[in-house]
Design a protein around this nucleic acid. Structure first.
Length: 663
RNA sequence: GCGUCCGUAGCUCAAUUGGAUAGAGCACUGGUCUUCGGAACCAGGGGUUGGAGGUUCGAGUCCUCCCGGGCGUACCA
């Protein structure tokens, strides 16, 4: 049962009978924040009052008169400037929930009142997108976890979802591996641990490329900036005697800013020089630096050779790719994330030339400074689809990918779960795609913020490199294991076997990381903290898992057969306020999922689960279950417990998180 | 410079995209126990939503300016 959708439908009818075209404000029916305003509230009378030029309270009254909700609501109340407050009738709530608990017609214990969407769509969901050349790191968490959760929720609602992992298997990174293999490979290591060795090669080459880029480009550029800025500051001193106080203030500010920038630049320069010195003094790296002075261009040449079909490089690619993919799959197995397709960049490489050709032919792209570009309105920079050296880019691959997906699956929407730094790229991509002629498809950049360390800076290791994903998961599981063991050991009689402890720790640790990520509004940055995500209180996976285990333990303790419990067709009793509150929360699962799907925000679901767990907690405190007054009440409360457990488990499952039966 | 996102309680974050008295967790203070799982629950203090104007029945949310940050900005992905 989707209560919200039902109410909106009824309001729409009433609104349209009042004024043609007023139906659009039916979306202003919302769950109330505060119980004293009822369970739901309609805020449509105020905007309508303005449109019709009549007092909002009068409109509200007229709406209430036309509204047909007597079967599911108490008589609506009008409050304040024209709010319509709705309270769900207890008998209606009871009947709806009784049906969901038993779900007699569906026979599906997981349906839980979830109403399939009225308009099933086809979505292509593009997320995770790791690079084969380098190990997955903390930066891949959000895309992977959010993408997977959205995939599950959309499917649950009845949409057709095609998940596609657009793996980076054809870019400069692979050129680095090839270069590294040709110069630094240890054949022994390749034979025993290919992925580890390739990772080492990648890092080695990356260090060398970085060093030379720093030395030949970055450092001189910053030196240049410092000179310019210093010169500008000189001139500013002359301007301090301006007559107009406003101008003087402005000049002062600009001077302060420039001085600040100068300090920053000098610090950056020092930093770069230190890094270079560190590389030069490194006993392994140092001697290689001068031998590989042209490594930047050499790597690009290896990449270009691969793209051009060079047999040696192609053979190396064929040899290494499977091991790289297998290594990535290990991580996905651990995260329980799967994809329908993993069509990486390489899949599209023979389509790229055609894409550029077509855009040029259709006058959408043209040559500029040697590169082929799409010039879009109001953009400072063009969308470059072919470099002056003839190589293709990320942009070209993305265009070819859209073309393929449209031809293959004709989706209604393509959703990219990618961090916010790429929003300019997607803005350009989407505009180009529209110009290209794909007008009907919804293109959505579901962007997200950065994972920060406790210091508020992007989460890095002490040496400044990205934190590896495997290590991150390991540490979360390790910490979870310690908590699990400490707590279990503190019991009079420990509850868990050694195996259960291990498997619990895995579920709790991984769940903690996923949940922490999903619980934050995806558009904001968040601070990564093991202690917070593994806390037993608050909006965490561990608390949800604990809530679930606690509910389930009742059935063990009372020796209850859940199957026969579910077959009971006796009506539920919702006499205590906390029973009613729990029932209402349970009934709102369906509308919560709809909301997650509407704006692609899984944090609505985590917030819902936290509220549900809280509502259960109050119920559990106030309403004895096994020791209920009579069998009827006991039966009713047991079924509320059962539905709570199933809803918690299902909600977590839709977030890609597993529950544990005992913890 | 231009574009874009952000600034909410001591800390970490919400706020149904313009709705009623801005909510949670942690920390702090005080309470609940003959434990249906205490890894719990309840209550309290704590806010000029960075600042100043404006729009309107109503602003954390929209517009203008200011302060402070992040990110992006022609051939990386």
């Amino acid at each position: 049962m989707n209560v919200l959708a039902d109410l909106r439908r009824r309001f729409r009818a009433a609104l349209e009978s009042l004024d043609a075209g007023a139906g659009e404000v039916a979306d202003m029916v919302l769950p109330s924040k505060d119980p004293k305003f009822g369970d739901y509230q309609a805020n449509c009378a105020m905007p309508l009052g303005k449109r019709l030029g009549r007092p909002p309270r009068e409109i509200a009254q007229e709406l209430v008169d036309r509204l047909e909700v007597a079967d599911l609501c108490e008589p609506p109340e009008i409050a304040g400037p024209g709010f319509i407050n709705l309270r769900i009738r207890d008998d209606w709530l009871r009947d709806q929930l009784t049906q969901i608990v038993g779900d007699p017609n569906q026979g599906d214990p997981d349906r839980l009142g979830i109403v399939p969407t009225e308009e099933p769509k086809t979505y292509v969901l593009d997320f995770s997108s790791p690079n084969v050349a380098k190990p997955m790191h903390v930066g891949h968490i959000r895309s992977t976890v959010i993408g997977d959760a959205l995939c599950r929720v959309l499917r649950q609602l009845g949409h057709r979802v095609i998940s596609d992992n657009h793996i980076g298997d054809w870019g400069t990174q692979f050129g680095m591996i090839i270069y590294g293999y040709k110069h630094f490979a240890d054949p022994q290591a390749i034979a025993t641990d290919a992925v580890g060795e390739l990772s080492r090669l990648y890092q080695r080459v990356n260090q060398l490329v970085d060093y030379h880029a720093t030395r030949e480009q970055k450092t001189p550029a910053i030196e240049q900036q410092i000179v310019e800025l210093a010169a500008r500051l000189e001139q500013m001193h002359d301007a301090t005697e301006l007559e107009n106080p406003k101008d003087r203030k402005k000049a002062d500010k600009r001077q302060r800013q420039s001085e600040g920038q100068l300090v920053d630049l000098r610090a950056t320069l020092d930093n770069l020089r230190n890094q270079m010195a560190a590389a030069e003094n490194d006993p392994e790296l140092g001697p290689l630096l001068s031998q590989h002075a042209d490594i930047g261009t050499a790597v690009l040449a290896e990449t270009a050779a691969l793209h051009a079909g060079d047999p040696t490089n192609q053979a190396l690619w064929d040899q290494f790719l499977p091991a790289c993919l297998a290594s990535i799959d290990e991580t996905y197995d651990r995260l329980h994330v799967t994809f329908d397709h993993s069509l990486g960049e390489s899949f599209y490489h023979d389509r790229l030339a055609g894409v550029v050709e077509e855009l040029v032919e259709r006058d959408l792209a043209r040559e500029s400074e040697g590169a082929i570009c799409v010039f879009l309105e109001n953009d400072d920079a063009p969308f470059i689809i072919r470099k002056k050296d003839g190589a293709f880019l990320y942009a070209t691959t993305d265009l070819a990918t859209v073309q393929y997906r449209m031809a293959e699956w004709t989706p209604d929407a393509i959703i990219y779960v990618v961090d916010h730094r790429q929003s300019f790229h997607f803005k350009q991509l989407f505009e180009t795609v529209k110009l290209w002629g794909y007008e009907g498809v919804q293109l959505e950049h579901v962007s997200f913020g950065t994972v920060l360390g406790e210091d508020g800076r992007p989460y890095k290791t002490r040496s400044g490199t990205a934190v590896g994903l495997t290590g991150l998961l390991d540490e979360a599981v390790e910490r979870a294991l310690k908590i699990v063991c400490d707590n279990d050991n503190a019991r009079d009689v420990p509850l868990l076997s050694e195996e259960q402890r291990q498997s619990n720790a895995e579920r709790i640790g991984i769940g903690a990381i996923k949940y922490a990520d999903l619980a934050h509004n995806r558009t904001s940055d968040y601070v990564f903290s093991y202690d917070k995500m593994l806390a037993m209180n608050g909006n965490t996976a561990a608390y949800m898992q604990y809530s679930y285990a606690r509910v389930r333990s009742i059935f063990g303790k009372g020796d209850i057969d859940v199957d026969s419990l579910r077959k009971s067709d006796a009506k539920l009793q919702l006499d205590h306020p906390s029973e009613r509150a729990l029932a209402l929360a349970l009934l709102q699962f369906s509308e919560t999922l709809e909301r997650v799907a509407t704006d692609f925000r899984p944090n609505h679901l985590t917030a819902y689960l936290f509220e549900l767990a809280s509502a259960y907690s109050r119920f559990f405190e106030n309403c004895p279950v096994l020791k209920a007054e009579d069998d009827q009440q006991r039966n009713s409360r047991l079924r509320l417990c059962d539905l709570t457990a199933r809803t918690l488990a299902k909600g977590l499952d839709l977030l890609g998180i597993q529950v544990v039966e005992r913890m």
